[in-house]
Computed example of a mutant assay.
Amino acid sequence: MESQSSDINEAIQASGEATLEQATKKAKEEINSFFNVRLDIAVTGESGSGKSSFVNALRGLKDNDEDAAPTGVTETTTEPTPYQHPTMPNVTLWDLPGIGTPKFKAKTYLKNVTFDRYDFFLIVSSVRFRENDIMLAKEIKKKKKVFYFVRSKIDHDVQSEKRKGIDKKETLSKIRTNCEEELKRIGNPNIFLVSSWDTSKFDFEKLIGILESELPQNKRNTLLQFVPVCTVAILEKKVRMFQKIAWAAALLSGAVAVAPVPGLSFSCDMSIVGSFFTSIYHSFGLDDKSLKRLSERVNKPHLKSLKMSPLVEKLIKISSLRLGASALGEFLCSLVPAAGSAAAAVISFTTTRNVLLKGLDALAEEARKVLREAGLE
């Protein structure tokens, strides 16, 4: 019990609060933020720049998937169009009309697309950044919001130049230099070279890293949850994020265990465990749709036959048995005033934390195996 008390004291200390009650309140706020904080991302640029394909890539979809943003050789977006993330309804990517089109002239563009709605802007171009892009960036900057330049369709450029005998490194250097020259009037903005077809290549991971570091704290976890797992580095960032949130979830479990209500602690713990494992399952790209898309992208058909949902079901079943066994002890302790209630909190915290972390480890290892099989180590 002394070791368990030490664990919960460590969790209280990590929260930055002085008491279990204060730490639990903070944990509740963090859990609510983790699952519910909204993130609205604007993807804009001139027509034909690949905005819609990039929206699809960020949502982990291909252009021909159901619910994907429509794409084409002509402007397909005529109004700001919201696309919810397939598994996170609090994340919306907005496919904005091309700047400079008759209905969305550059000077009134931000007003017409409801500027204040978005957390940040991604300005996309597939050839070169033009006057309208620069004008838009300046206006966004005036209004004290953040923007990033995304040079899309890089895979096409690399292949095209390769046919001329120009290697990938030289092509990327030339494109980056050209972009920097085009945008020098607005200082030294971040420029990211990306392929919507294959987010494991070029600057996609770098883009996510910059966004994560520059977003407000309560938005960072939301961003990291929804971005597709295309590299080991992104996966490991997600693992560390879920490790941190597991402590907050366990603290909530400990607080509920204090109440002498039969079944309350078990019911609460199972709700926490179910939500936690389901979020990991989707965030790590272990759901059937994500595995199918990965299989097609890396041309490894056997990946689509992997079924990870039975593992999640097994983890929840095992968790149910462990939590059920501890729930009886928690309830009996909670009947004893003061010391008994504290013991119940410690038992519940420790059991829930261990269940969550062991389940996370199992799912993370499966995700690492998938990346190895896909050749994305």
Rank of each mutant, 00 (worst) to 15 (best):
I210E: 10
V239Q: 04
N218F: 11
L224R: 04
S196D: 07
K237Y: 08
V239W: 13
F204R: 03
A250E: 04
V227M: 05
W247S: 09
K244D: 15
E212T: 14
P228L: 07
R240K: 15
K206L: 13
S200M: 05
V194I: 10
V227L: 03
L251V: 07
R220M: 07
P216V: 11
K219V: 09
E236P: 05
A233V: 15
V227I: 10
L224N: 02
I245M: 10
G254Y: 00
A255I: 11
Q225A: 07
A255N: 03
F242T: 04
Q243A: 14
M241E: 11
F242M: 14
L207I: 10
I245G: 06
Q217Y: 14
I245S: 00
F226E: 02
K201V: 13
L252H: 01
G209R: 12
R240T: 15
A250Q: 04
K238R: 02
G254H: 02
C230T: 06
A250T: 00
L211R: 05
I208S: 03
N221W: 07
S253P: 00
A248Q: 11
A249E: 08
S213M: 11
L211D: 00
Q225I: 10
A248D: 05
N221V: 06
F226S: 05
K237F: 07
T222C: 12
T199Q: 08
A255T: 03
L211Q: 00
A233N: 14
K201Q: 13
R240S: 15
D198H: 10
A248F: 05
W247L: 10
C230W: 02
S200I: 01
S195L: 01
A255S: 12
T222Y: 06
K237P: 12
L215W: 04
W197Y: 12
F226R: 01
V229S: 03
S253K: 01
V232F: 07
K237E: 15
P228H: 01
V232T: 15
A255H: 08
I234G: 00
K206P: 10
A246M: 08
V232L: 11
D198P: 08
P228G: 11
A249H: 04
W247E: 15
E236L: 13
A248C: 13
L235S: 08
Q225H: 12
S196L: 01
L235K: 07
F226V: 05
V256R: 03
V256C: 04
I208A: 06
K244Y: 06
F202V: 10
N221K: 06
Q225R: 12
F202S: 00
I208V: 13
K201D: 08
F226P: 01
G254A: 09
L252C: 14
R240N: 15
K206V: 13
N221D: 15
L193C: 09
K244V: 14
S196M: 05
